[in-house]
Design a protein around this nucleic acid. Structure first.
Lengths: 147, 147
DNA sequence: GCTTGACCTCAAGTTGACTTGAAGTCGTAG
DNA sequence: CTACGACTTCAAGTCAACTTGAGGTCAAGC
């Protein structure tokens, strides 16, 4: 049992953010001590997961979707695999951009938009972009991520 | 020379967005035909690059920083390499999350927060997270990305 | 018993990246 | 030559993800 300040200190997440996360249903406080929220140590793991998800470019809504409705991660395997595949694709994008950047750093051409290697990189990227499924869940209507 | 509708159609970027990008200095129209902006075919390449950067999780400000002030990519090599290394790190984050997801999809443990493999993945992620340099340029004060 | 400081709620403000709307301007096809 | 449709500007709205502020509560130490 920790109160919000301790969770904040241990996780590096601001109290205001923790309250916000609770408000939208991403985390849960287990009880109150007077007015004060009491958190289980579990919440620290969950916050790690949330941070990780954010770093990977997921919205809070998407992250919420990765835990089950009841808070424990519990979703169909194929959905998880689909997410994992999304990540895979995103990694490829990243690699492309990285290569493009590295190339720009080394290429002696006067303007990179004129360098054939660079154009080829971009072309490849564009091609990938067009053949991809265009993610987006389209949820709308409530401010709570989890009901 | 294309007007905005054609650029929109060819790039998949909405006219309003193109105007916005021009407003903040990310792209340039080369002239006007009456009131209408005329774009060089070059802009399509640039938009690819912008889309790629966005997909990789960069803000428009960061993307703007990758082209030189004058629109042509022209920045110190080591800065570019630094960006590339950022990307590398981001890819590792992504891979971690992907592995975590895949694990969750296969792991038979009743609650994943109790599965040791899962906890180990998270711990590793958290460790990386703490040792990383905390990116962010901290620019402030103007709505134009490029002046 | 009182002060202090960490917490509370609720409303409003902020930032980035756009989108939408109203009102106006053109060039071209009929 | 006029009507149409594709453009224009500018202000305001939207959405996510928070942060800030005002005003209030409470338990623990002195």
């Amino acid at each position: 049992m920790m109160d919000i300040g301790e969770v904040a200190e241990r996780s590096g997440v601001l109290p205001s953010t923790l309250r916000y996360y609770e408000e939208v249903g991403l985390i849960r406080s287990i009880s109150r001590h007077g007015l004060r929220r009491q958190f289980d140590a579990d919440v620290l793991l969950k916050l790690s997961l949330i941070e990780l998800g954010k770093a990977a470019g997921f919205s809070l809504a998407e992250i919420a979707g990765m835990f089950g409705k009841d808070g424990r991660p519990n979703i169909p395997r194929d959905q998880l695999h689909a997410k994992a595949d999304d990540l895979q694709r995103q990694m490829l994008d990243l690699r492309m951009l990285r290569d493009a950047l590295r190339h720009v750093a080394e290429c002696p051409a006067p303007s990179h938009l004129e360098c054939p290697t660079f154009r080829k990189l971009l072309k490849a990227a564009t091609r990938r972009r067009l053949t991809r499924p265009a993610s987006g869940t389209g949820r709308r209507g409530s401010s709570r991520l989890v009901e």
